[in-house]
Nucleic acid binder design. Structure first.
Lengths: 224, 224
DNA sequence: TGATATATCTCGAGT
DNA sequence: ACTCGAGGTATATCA
């Protein structure tokens, strides 16, 4: 990993065109070949960048300045005009062991599939990822009365999730073997707007306590 | 901007939980308060981070190591156990003049507004950003036969764009001065799923060549 | 390889 | 403060 602090101007031509006037910035060159140009704000997102795989070619200009040409296979190009170098250091980091995550939608779906009873008394799981023409329904269940229920699982329930579930229900209710099918949006947090739209569409909302669900699970530590 | 190369382990607890075992990484502390933990790969995305606004508190441990606690208002926390510092430098970058972009959706809409004939023979523009109760329609046109057409402009046509346009059409068709109104999704690229749903909703799809459109334009350089 | 859904999405504009 | 839409979204998964 190479860290360069330099006064530079930048041009990108590829999926769009972009230009950065001259200023002092961080140029971050990683071992995977990527180059990113950071200002002192915008959180972790660079002003401009080139993703790997790509190649960096450095051209020394007459005035003692440099121009970096970073290109990828698709013909996209990032050009950095380096006017003044204020810092330049290289560091050997080695291969990173990588990140372990817990609490994403896949885990929530997994836990609900194992504990359909938390959605309602007597609920049973018919299938996870039940296929339809426009995509898979997260969970297909039967409630205590034996009626089919399509469950859309989200970490955060928003308007898109309601629309998505409504489209599934439209299709599923055309199948006489399943109809009538009702819908449930299950999420850790459900936005007010999503609740309103769900009400209009006849969809029930169910908030889920991830930690409690995990506690009901077999108790094995899943992460550490 | 502060650049630290250090052997460290990291834990994040917030919207999800995540853990990074000990390894040498870049710790990037920006003037906006953000902290990001970078490995030597994964392009510009850090392994772990805390977005601003947040506060960094450094605690010196007994063994001569440090623990960084980064917290935000929502109670999310990033904890970095710094075991060994290999590099530590701070740089004053100043405020960045910012990025100039060209080729985004707004430009596509602008170009189509100037060349409605590319959507169909004899098409005329009625209005850009035609207002409705649920938001503005990108372009309202009349086709060669004088029928009103609502055009939704996207760089990439996906299922959301179709739904959005369908909602507009439902409203516009209630206005006897306009009805019957048909819909066109105009995009540089239209996903298969979006085409299917558009068919169901009676909406036409039209792919647009941005570069060709720009060539038809008056030829003035728009950016530099 | 292409299509689809997720993301600690991020970021900016508008209300 | 919140919502909504766009993004060079990027990234993982699945066909």
């Amino acid at each position: 990993m190479r860290l360069v602090i330099a006064r530079c101007s930048v041009d990108y031509v590829g999926r769009l065109s972009a230009h950065l006037p001259s200023a002092v910035r961080l140029l971050l060159v990683k071992a995977d070949g990527s180059v990113s140009v950071h200002a002192d704000d915008r959180a972790y997102k660079p002003l401009n960048w080139m993703s790997p795989p790509c190649t960096l070619r450095v051209v020394d200009d007459a005035a003692g300045t440099q121009t970096w040409h970073v290109v990828n296979k698709a013909g996209e190009e990032l050009v950095v005009h380096v006017e003044e170098v204020l810092h330049d250091s290289t560091h050997d980091l080695g291969v990173d062991p990588g990140l372990v995550k817990d609490g994403v939608e896949a885990h929530l779906q997994e836990l609900l599939a194992g504990q359909p009873g938390t959605l309602g008394t007597g609920w049973r799981l018919v299938r996870r990822e039940y296929p339809t023409a426009i995509g898979p329904v997260d969970l297909l269940c039967r409630d205590g009365a034996g009626q089919v229920v399509a469950v859309e699982v989200k970490r955060r329930g928003e308007i898109d999730g309601v629309e998505q579930l409504a489209r599934y229900l439209e299709l599923l209710n055309r199948d006489p073997a399943l109809a009538p099918v009702r819908g449930v949006l299950a999420a850790q947090e459900i936005k007010p707007q999503a609740r309103v739209l769900a009400g209009v569409r006849g969809i029930d909302c169910h908030t889920v306590d991830y930690d409690a669900l995990r506690g009901l699970d077999d108790g094995a530590d899943r992460l550490f």
